[in-house]
Nucleic acid binder design. Structure first.
Lengths: 137, 137
DNA sequence: GTTGATTCTGTAGTGGCTACAGGAAGTAGG
DNA sequence: CCTACTTCCTGTAGCCACTACAGAATCAAC
């Protein structure tokens, strides 16, 4: 059994975040020492590692909760897990598309700026102009 | 002079958001009617349009505040504006890189999942495994 | 015994909104 | 003039996923 600090180091998850996960019932309330300190075991390390990896991949807490629940029924089909992952992939791809659009816009703006006076700055002009967006004329 | 509802429609910014912008001093407090309703003019439309475009491009409020302040000195150099835009471009590009990494990971995970049982699900295995991250072995 | 690290609880802050509640004032039709 | 409907007002609380305290207690090491 390890303390919260050790769990934090082992998993790379902030101590405050671990306690936050307990509050929102993403991690179960662990047993305590006589003085009230939390004690964690191997299963907690596994679960928190899972959570960290899923968070790193951008899954939100609700999705992670669902996946953790599904894991508790090993003979269940992993169709639902697959669907959550696919949804996440869709979300990531749409964010990529949006950011690529932004990049194009920003690049153009910056290229057109001659670092002159604010009064004639193309960056400001683009932002001012209601026709300055990608799908404009 | 137009009401907040008209300003909202003209700029595509939510009424609540306009009031929020006033609270955080991104928009100046407008004059009011005798009964206390806000009245906006052409300059407010311009400013709010600028804000909306900048937000659409992902600039944060602090950056927008700075750009708006710089605009008030038309003879100032737009070097600082250019720098804010360049920083934003850098941020966008780093987000793109991160998301492309996530996409690769997610795609691999999903491809390896045979939609069998949770117990043998590759998606869960990858998330469980501490070596499952992009820069792992 | 004394220092310094760790942990505890509880609360508040972050960014950028959004969603109410509960009331006042404006507008249109009869 | 009365009613119904819409807009607007203030103020507060909620969203997400944390993060940052304050102030107290306990632990480990010397």
């Amino acid at each position: 059994m390890i303390t919260i600090g050790a769990l934090s180091k082992r998993t790379g998850v902030n101590i405050e975040t671990i306690r936050y996960y307990e509050r929102i019932r993403l991690m179960p309330p662990p047993p305590r020492t006589d003085s009230g300190r939390r004690l964690y075991g191997a299963e907690d390390v596994r679960r928190l590692t899972f959570i960290r990896h899923a968070r790193n991949l951008g899954f939100d807490i609700a999705a992670i909760k669902t996946m953790l629940t599904l894991q508790e029924v090993p003979e269940a089909s992993c169709e639902q897990v697959s669907r959550i992952a696919t949804d996440q992939l869709d979300a990531v791809e749409s964010r990529i598309r949006r950011l690529l659009g932004l990049r194009t816009e920003l690049t153009r703006m910056i290229k057109e700026c001659d670092n002159g006076k604010v009064a004639t700055c193309r960056i400001i002009e683009v932002l001012d102009d209601s026709s300055g967006h990608p799908d404009g004329p």
